[in-house]
Design a protein around this nucleic acid. Structure first.
Lengths: 152, 152
DNA sequence: TGTTTCCCTACCAATTCACTAGGATTCCCG
DNA sequence: CGGGAATCCTAGTGAATTGGTAGGGAAACA
């Protein structure tokens, strides 16, 4: 299960906007530099966020991007979906569209459970939470377990 | 977050072996047909499972593959790791190897929490559980929520 | 010895990924 | 009403990954 560069970049760009405040706007170039993201690549991602209604843009001298809604009303899951498609997919199709036979039949509810558990986190945590470094308690308790940081 | 065809195929093949019993061996061709997986592609995957120590093989007339350990001692996570690498990665690197700056700093614990939540399921559920269609209660309760089956 | 099966290397087409180029368009400001 | 500064759009590109094929060599068993 891999999270693509697009998704990662999109979230980080949105976090910069969240940190800047709902009414200040940032230029793509400034975000790119702050987060070490290739500028033109980021422009494409910001275009997706705009078309997805998460961000509004302004051209010209005092232009830039800002969040379309308050940062505490935008869950991380929304950013990832808009920039990169479905949160979780198996072979490119979403879990409910799969079908398995024989001893693999229970694989479907298993993938559903995995997706539900991913959603529980990414759907609950908002841009404001991460930007302010104030993750919800249940997420923190997951991340605080030293076991969770070990490799295999 | 996508689960690759390799990972999906690997788990389904392992489930066929689990259903066949720890001492019966199945030919690659039989597994391929039962699960609708391209035969030669599957051979490569079974080779990975063998090198990963999850499966043992036997050549010749009465040959085939069988599980190297009892099915109830092999979590799904192991199969995916052996066939497809790390369970969860961001831009191809594992969460603990990432580093973020500025308002994105709390992204790291967030990815860790996501990974922990995925592990909690795939590390707990074994091949035997899925093959017998008897998922653990906590997983079932996640999959039973109708909300978990809706699309976005 | 011959059949059956795994095993190995190599290859392939298509897609995706991550990124770049260059210009058109729109906006504010002086 | 220009002119610079930004976004916006289309297109392209090299490398890697994905998903799959082909063909033959090596071992086990009858």
């Amino acid at each position: 299960m891999r999270i693509s560069a697009r998704a990662d970049y999109a979230v980080r760009a949105a976090l910069e906007l969240a940190a800047a405040g709902d009414d200040t706007s940032l230029k793509a170039e400034a975000i790119a530099e702050a987060q070490g993201i290739p500028h033109k690549f980021l422009e494409g991602i910001l275009g997706d966020l705009r078309r997805g209604g998460l961000v509004v843009s302004q051209r010209g001298g005092k232009g830039g991007y800002r969040l379309a809604r308050p940062a505490d009303s935008i869950p991380i899951a929304d950013v990832i979906r808009v920039a990169d498609g479905p949160l979780v997919s198996v072979r490119g199709v979403r879990p409910p569209d799969l079908s398995y036979i024989g001893p693999a039949e229970s694989l479907l509810p298993l993938w559903i459970a995995v997706r539900a558990n991913v959603r529980k986190i990414l759907g609950e945590v908002t841009l404001a939470d991460v930007a302010a470094a104030k993750l919800p308690d249940d997420v923190l308790s997951l991340a605080d377990d030293p076991e969770a940081w070990t490799n295999p």
